[in-house]
Simulated assay, not measured.
Amino acid sequence: MEKSKVYFTDLRTKPGFNMLDKLEKLVKAAGIENIDFKEKYVAIKIHFGEPGNLAYIRPNYAARIVKLIKQLGGKPFLTDANTLYTGRRHNALDHLDAAYENGFNPLTVGCQVIIADGLKGTEYREIEVNLKHTKAAKIGSAIADADIIISMNHFKGHEMTGFGGALKNLGMGSGSRGGKLFMHSSSKPKIKEKNCVGCRMCVRSCAHDAIFLNENRVAVIDYDKCVGCGQCIAVCQYNAAQVNWDEAASIASEKIAEYTYAVIKDKPHFHINFIMDVSPNCDCWSNNDMPIVPNIGIAASFDPVALDKACVDMVNSAPTIKGCAIHDHHDSDLHIEDKFTAIHGKTDWRVCLEHAQNIGIGNMEYELIKV
């Protein structure tokens, strides 16, 4: 199999040539102009960031891509689907407020902002794929109905999949509420009783009334109600709510790959990863921890698998920032070859990439081209 091309630019600038100019030069070098945008609806899949988290992609970058797509004749819109857990992006109204608060609005980005799966996360199209886990994927309507898919992805760690990049943003991020439930359904959390202090944060944050405190003021999960959304893990400050690491995490990763397949099926698509503020956890959290490595740059490709793999390799080759989350688990980084498993020790990010490659999304073998 021929290696996929991944294009990369660092963060060095000079007067008259800023990072927005470098972004445009990068995507043009990677071939974005070869897509026929004329009069096509273009979904720019992005994560607007949970308010309080400051690691998300700056809206300025989105605005430059919007401007370029319009110049090429396309009709772009920024989009994301509602979350499964309770938060500021749980329904379209709050989600739009959160997006606007973080700078993603028609005035700043130059196009409309649309919540892909509607008011309550119930507007979707079923896209038949007939893969290992997924027969038909439930994809947010605005994304499913678009003619072209562009993903803009903040590359960072993730507590379930090891890292989050193009595949995670496209697969999990484009699923309707029912689609997200399907992807999470094999991966329900557990409570480590000795860590629980009875603060009730998990109880208050559960959208499905699946958690309560027992007579000893220890959290208990009602698995008949639990949907595996992971919100209790995100809000627990005492490491009491934890992912139940068994085969379920691998299944969820494979489902994410299959949903990505559905999103880009039979459509032109192009992907951009921002390897900046590489935080240890997802942008769905209402806070972001310090980066684990220095800012690296921006990468782009038609192949989301090669793109994510190249970014993993660049992060793993970068020096670790002293005092970051990696050092919560390791006294020294001298022998750490994989920074993502160093943070999330029972994850295996390779599962999603390998399954994505096996079902024909892309290729883990790549050629990195400096722009």
Rank of each mutant, 00 (worst) to 15 (best):
E2Q: 13
Y7N: 05
Y7T: 04
D10W: 11
T13G: 07
P15A: 15
A30Y: 04
Y41S: 13
G52Q: 00
G52W: 03
I57Q: 03
L68M: 13
K70C: 08
L78N: 04
T83F: 05
R89E: 01
D94W: 11
L96Y: 04
A98I: 09
A99M: 08
N102R: 13
V109R: 01
I115C: 05
T122W: 07
Y124R: 04
K132R: 15
H133R: 10
K135Y: 13
K135L: 11
A136R: 12
K138F: 15
D147K: 13
G162Q: 01
G165M: 06
N169I: 07
G175S: 05
K188Q: 10
P189V: 01
G198E: 01
R204H: 08
A207F: 06
H208Y: 10
F212A: 02
F212M: 07
V218H: 00
A219T: 00
A234N: 03
A234P: 01
C236K: 05
Q237S: 09
N239P: 02
D246S: 11
A252V: 10
Y259L: 11
Y261A: 09
V263G: 00
P268H: 08
H269G: 07
H271Y: 14
D277E: 13
N281C: 14
D283S: 11
D283E: 14
S286M: 13
M290G: 15
I292Q: 02
S301K: 12
D308Q: 13
A310N: 06
C311N: 09
C311P: 06
S317L: 14
A318M: 13
P319C: 12
H335F: 15
E337M: 13
A342C: 12
A342S: 13
H344M: 08
G345K: 12
W349P: 00
H355E: 06
L368M: 15
I369M: 10
